[in-house]
Each structure stands twice: as C-alpha cells, then as structure tokens.
Design a protein around this nucleic acid. Structure first.
Lengths: 225, 225, 225, 225
DNA sequence: AATGAATGAGGATTCATTCAT
DNA sequence: TATGAATGAATCCTCATTCAT
C-alpha cells in the first residue's frame, strides 16, 4: 500500500505531524527503548524508510517531539504571565509554571531523554536549531518572569528558568520510577522520594522563588543599611 | 588465565571491588551504553562469566557503584555536618553539600542512570536493598540538617534532602551535554544552560535553603503578628 | 555485499528457497544444534538479519524444511498409490511407502526434531498451519490407502498413516545413532538395533499391514461364523 | 554446608541415587534443556562439582536414568511373561508390554533423548555399557516372548522387541507435543495424531503381533501346501 | 517521495565443566 | 571427596539505518 506522495510543503508538514503523533502516542504507553521505528512506521501507516525521510534519526524524531512539547509549555506559560502587568506572588508564579508543565504530561519524560540520549545521536545542525529554540524561548519567558516578579534583578529571570528546568528534570525522574520500584514504594519506610510530580515541584519551586526574593531583600538591606 | 579462587568472604569482597573499580574506570571515560560486560571483564582480568557471579546483571553492577558513591557522599556530608553542634548559615550548608558531592565526580552521571536505566533491570530484592539504603541514609543526614539549620521544622530536613537530590540530578544532566552540543555551546547566545556543575548547584541550593528559611520566618511573623 | 532486493513475490519465494536450500545442505552434514543461523546466512550469501525476515525463528526455518520434505513424500506416495485402481498387496504398499520415504533421506531426522524441538519455538499460527497441512495431506493419503487396501475399514487408513508416521520416527532415530555408538555397533553381540532404515521399516510396516488385515479377517470370520 | 564424604561403596551408591532421584524429579516437571546441573545439584543438596564426580557429563546422568527406567521395565515385563509357561494371546502380550511401559511414565520421554542427545555426549565406555545392557536385557525378554508366543520363529522375538522399542519411541513423541500445539489440537480437524499414548500403543502393537502371526501362518500354509 | 528488503554490528547472559582449595 | 569460584564458548535475534526499486 503506497501512500500518496507529499509534494507540497503543507502535505509534507502534515505527514511529519502524523509521524510525530504516532510517536507521541507510543511514548505515552511505553518507554523510549521499547519504541522501535518499525512501530512508529506502522502506527503512522507509513513504511519504515519513510520515517527516515522526515527525520534523520530516531533521536531526531523524539528531539522534535520534545521541542514541540516545550513550545506548548512556553506558549502556555508566556500567555499566563502576560495576562496583566501586575506583580505576581511567588505562589502564583509557581502555580502557573506547574500548570503549564502539566499540560504536557510527557514533557518531563522526554526531557530526561534529552540530555542522556537524544542529543547524543543528532547532527550538529539539528542540535544547534534545538538549542537556539531553547535559548530564544527561555530568554523570552525569563523576561516575563522578571516583569511579574519585580524583585528579580536583571538576569535572575534566566536563573529562575534554569532552576525550573532543572527541577522539572530531576523531579520528573524521581517521580517516574521503574515498575519494580513502583511496587516497593508502597511499603512503609520507603515512602521517601515517592512523590507525585505536581506537589513536589510546586513546593520546591516555591522555596526557590522565595529564596531568590530573600537574597535580594538581604542585599538591599545591606546596601541601604 | 585462571584467577586464584576467592573462597573466603574477604577475598570475594576484594574481587567484587576489583570489578567495581574496573567498571568505574570505564565509566569515567565512556557512556554507560558503550561499556560492555566484556570490557569490564577484561579490565578486571576476569572471564566474562565471572562478572555475573558477582552481579546478576550489568545494571546491578552499576547500581552498586551508585550506592557506593552515595555512601561516600553521605559519609562525607554527615561528617562535615556533625563536626560541631552550632548552627550553620545556609551558605555554609550549601557549600558542604557541594563539596561532598564533588568528591564523587561520577555520582551525578550515575544518578541519572539510576531512575531511567539501572532500576529497570534489577530484581525486586536488589531494588529493595538499594531503596532501604537510600531511605536510611537520607533520613539520617536529614536529621543533621535539621540540627544545623535550626529554622527547619521537623520533616523539612527530609524535604531539603529531596531537593538536594533532585537538583544534583537535574543539574548533573544539564552540565554534561553530548559531545556535539558541548562544542555548540561555545557559540555566543547559546551560553544558556551551559554551566559548570558546582556553581550552578550552589546558587540553586542556596536559594532553596533561603527560601525554606523565608517560609518559616514568614509563618512565624504571621503567628506572632 | 548487498543482495539485489527481492521485491516481487516470486523473487521472495526464490530467496526463501535459497535459504531453505542452504539449511538443508547444512543439515545433511551436521546435527541441528551445530547449525548456527550465521552459518545458514553465509551459506545463503545473505546477511544474518535477512534470514529472520523470511523465517521468524531458526525453528520455523526447519519446520518449513520438514513441511517441504513431507510434501514431497506425500506427493510421491499419492502418485504411486493412484496409478491404478486395483487392490495392492500389503507388500506392494509397504514398498511404495518405503520408496517415497527414502526419496527424502533427511526427512526422518527432521521429523525427530519436529516434536522435540521445532514445534517448541514457533508461534501459534505457524504451528497451526503446519498441523493443518499435516492433517490435510495425511487424510488424503489415508483415503488412497483405503482404496488400495480394500480390507481396510473406514478410518483404518488414518490409523495406518499414524503407524507409518510413528514407525518412521522411531526407526529413523534408532537407525541414526551417535558417532561413538556407530563405531561400537560393529562389535559382535551389539548388533541389536543396528539396522539400516529401509529393511527395518519395511519389515515392520509389513507386519503392521498384515496385522490390520488379520484383524479384519478375524472379526469377519466371527460375524459370519 | 559440606556434605559428609561418601567413602564406602554403599555410601557412594546412595549418593548416586540421591542425584538420580533429583534429576528424575526435575525431569517430571520440565524439559531436558531446562534442567541445569545447578538445579540438579541444589535439589540433591550437593554442590555442582559433586555431580560431576558421580557422572562425567549431564548426558551420562540422564543415560543412567534411562537405563534404570529400562531396567524396571524389563523386570516388570519379564516377570509378567514368566508367570506361567502357557501361550499368550497377542492381546495379552500387548497389554503386558503396555502395562510395564506405563509403570515408567517418563521412560518414553527419556528414550527420545537417548538417540538424539544422550548418546551424543557420552564416552565410548559408557555408551558400550549401556548398549551391552540393552542388548542383554532385550535378548532375554525376546526369549520370553518367543516362549509365550509360540508362533514366533527363532529371532522373531528380537524383531518384536525392536518393534516395541520403536513404537514406544515414536508414539511417545507424537503423544507429547509442545505446549502451543497441545492447545491447537483441541480444534476440530486437527485431532489427527492427537492420541494418548496407551491406547495408540496397544492398537499398534497388537496389529504388529497379529501381523507377525499372519506372516508365519502364511509361510506355513505355503510350505505345507 | 515511498517502499520495504537487506544489512550487520551488537551483546548480555547461560551453563556445562574444570580445578584450586 | 566435596566445594563452588572461575571459565569462556556459544548464539539467537533485534533494530536503526540504507538504498535499490
């Protein structure tokens, strides 16, 4: 069964999306290593070789998936942060970030792949484009943060974005343990580190934001003292 | 080449250490996937099969490696925290944690494997033992933290340990990018997220600790207000 | 060395035959366990992985080999049995079966693998198809037998086919001993069970057919008595 | 836990029996390939190495098991056949053989291993002893058969023993299909060859014996004709 | 552009057997 | 004799990727 050829740009983009959709579907249900390109192909209704016309490697495919997830996250967060110009409480910011993040439930799992797997089998140009995207959007959102958290000094928005990133990465992994472990964690005494993503993330991020604020207050009081 | 048989308990422990040493050596120079059991064996001066007498799977071997690294980390930190009984500043705590962590340069790389790879091919008992170790030592160090940071409420020591763990995990990954990416990050504009582990970790942890303190102060001032 | 791609159905069938031929060649010279898939591949002039495109497992490959051998046996026997419509003597039938069987010298060795090895690593569908083939052809040949041996009651043709099958299986094994044993059997007093396949098979089958006839005669004489 | 050493002959024989018992136990529940020497050892309460003191190879161990099973079979059959001196009907003989055979339910499974596996990894001497045992007992029982079936010419007792052997071998395999197949055989139309051992064996053997008788009658009638 | 046949490197484990203790 | 640590050969199959059609 030969698919119609996608000659026009928008047809190609459409087909790309079909593949990405299939990959995401599979990723929701199974770990990365269990997802073979044959599986992605058959789920896409395409041949194996066709996948590699649209994505140079399996890792590139998932890197794009990660990018799309990140994009939605950035858009959601940016929108929430730019609704008004008024300052926001740390709590409010934390909560917005958390909401934006959980709109992409698979994003954190993708992110743990990002540094350990995906970027390891991708060519320079693809990596460059991804990193440019990441830098651009991170910087933009950082500016919003600085606007809504007036105590942030210039540059601290970026710092906060870094910490959000890192927190999501770390908590994402801890909150998604191996099947064997998932079972074990029911036992009393092992409850440590067995935490749902959302609350842990919010608590930690909240502390972080308040810490940044405290640092600023502190240095201010010294200056003005 | 037949090795002298390790019949006594201490001989077996010694041989175990030889294997662990070889594995660590290799891990310093290459990614986990590139380390074959054949490599570990030949570096240990043992036959391939012998490795599997001491460790049921490749993953178990590296899980033990992670545990040993963690043990050293906990010991170093515990010792630093129990040197005196006086309160410590957030900065001081942060710095001790960072020092203890960097005494085990490969620990963070091992930790990223922990949740995504190692615990996925290990039997229940092995996973259980590891988690018990983790729970025990984390709890113990949490108590020290509560002693040296008097503003911490009971239970907040554990919370802080969780955050340390998560921060190390996340920053460890971000700070150790793929070779292609490492090169790219030289370029201006992409410097984002290109940060050495130590300073990033300390800044973030510091903010976190100050945040916890601020939360406490805040709730106190409300109560007493 | 990349082979020309077999896109057309007949090209694929051709390649399948190349693999089967290579496997049969190897099987003539060495025991099943000694035949590695690598060997089959290199003998086929194909890559290792290619074998598994055509056959899901090594056992499936040899199951197909067995089926092809059986097919030739059935065809030869059916043809011999349908040459005329006249009754045949037990001796004549026995001899036809023996001839058809010895046209496939490796068939009996393959058959001993069938129940003990091949069907143990084959999926349901493959096993089903093989058994359907076996049932269909066995039933058909059974009908021929009933035609040429008029004393056979309905259903006894199938019974006879079962006995032929079982005899070929058993004698095939006894007549093909291990190398060490082959040597020993030269010694006097151990000649027991050291028998070439053909004559043993014919003698036994002959007795069997005559026994069936005798049973019929016997029950007839009782009825008419 | 070091076992007491077996210094006396009878202690050694006892230990041998412990091992054989363990192996038989395991063989009842699992296929030959699934039985590792480690399993046999632990089930025997001995160390792996100890097994190899008593049996040179895994195959020798199972060859001895086969021999013991055969011995019991011969003894049971011999006893039944020598109870009186009167002639027996084919039916009676068939039934005695079948009873003796089914007293050793695992014997037929062991026998299929005999020619295809066991004798392939055993030294000359072991093979020789086994074959001598087989020849001796087969010959002895053959004599009993000739006594109870007076129509048998000299030498035909041995012929019959061969056929019994071969029938047990073949039917044993057909009656013990792979798990996948066992399921399939429930389906209608595939019932062919799906037969319990006992009845199939008796029907076939009966026909065989009657065939031998018929042959004799036939040649007699010619001679006297 | 689409296909899917062909590639072939890749690799952890198993396990019978040996032999130092 | 008993032990069990050490050996190391042995191997099927997977799967991302290529490329002839």
């Amino acid at each position: 069964m030969v698919q119609r050829r996608a000659r026009q740009v928008h047809q190609k983009e459409e087909r790309r999306q079909v593949i990405l959709g299939a990959a995401l579907d599979l990723f929701e249900r199974s770990p990365f290593q269990a997802i073979t390109t044959a599986l992605v192909a058959s789920k896409s209704g395409l041949a194996k070789g066709t996948i590699f016309i649209y994505f140079k490697t399996k890792e590139e495919l998932f890197l794009v998936l990660a990018e799309e997830g990140l994009l939605k996250f950035f858009e959601a967060l940016d929108e929430a942060l730019s609704e008004s110009k008024d300052p926001l409480s740390p709590n409010a910011v934390t909560s917005q970030v958390s909401i934006a993040l959980q709109g992409q439930p698979h994003l954190t799992r993708l992110m743990s792949l990002l540094y350990t797997v995906l970027e390891h089998n991708v060519d320079r140009l693809t990596a460059l484009r991804f990193r440019e995207f990441l830098a651009t959007r991170t910087t933009r959102t950082a500016r919003y943060l600085e606007q809504r958290l007036p105590f942030l000094a210039p540059g601290q928005g970026l710092e906060l974005m870094f910490q959000i990133h890192v927190l999501a990465l770390g908590i994402g992994q801890v909150a998604d343990p191996a099947p064997v472990v998932k079972e074990l964690l029911q036992a009393p005494g092992l409850y440590i580190f067995d935490t749902p993503f959302g609350p842990s993330f919010e608590r930690s991020l909240n502390a972080l934001v308040m810490g940044l604020q405290a640092q600023v207050d502190h240095s201010n009081s010294i200056e003005s003292g």
